[in-house]
């Protein structure tokens, strides 16, 4: 696989609130020898929120990124499930819907760009599991995760609606990966139940209820941490643990790590490389403690 190159699309959330996801992704890719330079001057993916206001404009947003990647000659890889779906869905629509394709192409040309439809949109989790594969991942593990019980929260937009990565209802792509790292996937039946997304802002009570169910299910399954593949899921699951715990009268605290942070730790990267200290619910101690009792 090494030698395969992608254009990396970080997405807006990774510029600040989720920059630990960005850092751990870049450093893990470097260890695995995956060439994925950042897509130059990428823009908003045309996110969920934009589709609810204007479909054609959201399509242009997504298509400008696809055109940029096509000009570089690479497929596009992202670690945000929201970006993955918005870009991928637009890519499908452009292939299927001639009217949309004509409008979007005309718009792109007005900005001096063109898109012929040759780019595939990938999630980095899928690239690691499918393209890199078990053997190569295991070869890089120098600090196995010692059976750490992990609730693998796949979230909704990673596998739905297209199911290109894995089964839309019960994906286990992340469970397989953390197993290769020496961790033990914990039972987590709500692994694809929605975290609430933007409802945490517009309907905070409902958002906390939806997220609280996930946190309690993760703890009930015996997990010591949750792993995510989406920046919005990470913030929703991590940032409201205190408030949810107070409301429910139960301890809802549990570290919420990006799957790339678990990979990086197993690959021997330092906590600075993975920005573990930026977690709101301390995570570094959990991982550092694994080595103490080999």
């Amino acid at each position: 696989m090494s030698g395969r190159a992608f254009s990396y699309f970080p997405g807006c959330s990774l510029e600040c609130s989720n920059r630990a996801y960005d850092a751990s992704t870049r450093n893990v890719a470097a260890v695995l020898g995956i060439q994925m330079p950042e897509l130059e001057d990428w823009n908003c993916c045309g996110a969920t929120a934009y589709f609810g206001v204007d479909e054609a404009r959201a399509g242009v947003m997504a298509a400008r990124n696809l055109a940029l990647a096509e000009a570089r000659g690479h497929d596009l890889v992202t670690v945000c499930s929201g970006c993955y779906l918005a870009l991928g869905k637009t890519n499908h629509r452009l292939a299927e819907d001639a009217d949309l394709r004509r409008d979007v192409q005309q718009a792109l040309r007005a900005g001096g760009m063109d898109y012929r439809g040759t780019v595939t949109v990938r999630h980095f989790l899928d690239v690691v599991v499918r393209d890199v594969g078990e053997e190569a991942v295991r070869r890089h593990v120098v600090r196995p995760l010692q059976g750490l019980p992990v609730a693998c929260y796949h979230g909704c937009q990673l596998s739905r609606p297209h199911g290109e990565i894995d089964d839309p209802e019960f994906p286990d792509v992340m469970d397989r990966l953390v197993g290769w790292l020496g961790a033990a996937p914990a039972p987590f039946p709500l692994k694809t139940r929605c975290c609430g997304g933007m409802l945490m802002t517009t309907q905070p009570g409902l958002g906390r209820e939806m997220t609280g169910k996930l946190l309690l299910a993760a703890k009930a399954g015996g997990a010591h941490c949750v792993a995510t593949a989406c920046p919005l899921c990470q913030v929703n699951l991590e940032a409201y643990q205190r408030a949810i715990g107070r409301e429910r009268g139960e301890d809802c605290r549990i570290p919420v790590l990006y799957f790339t942070q678990l990979m990086g730790w197993a690959f021997g990267l330092g906590s600075g490389d993975l920005r573990l200290e930026e977690a709101l619910t301390p995570a570094r101690e959990l991982l550092a403690g694994l080595g103490a009792t080999p």
Binding site: C12, C16, D41, W42, N43, V60, V104, Q106, A110, E278
Partner: peptide, 23 residues
């Protein structure tokens, strides 16, 4: 370090606006 007050715009902002206008 997970909160910043200002966002950065892209370089191709005007191109993007031209695209939206063409739509």
């Amino acid at each position: 370090g997970r909160l910043s007050l200002f966002g950065r715009g892209i370089v191709g902002r005007q191109d993007l606006q031209r695209m939206m206008a063409a739509l």
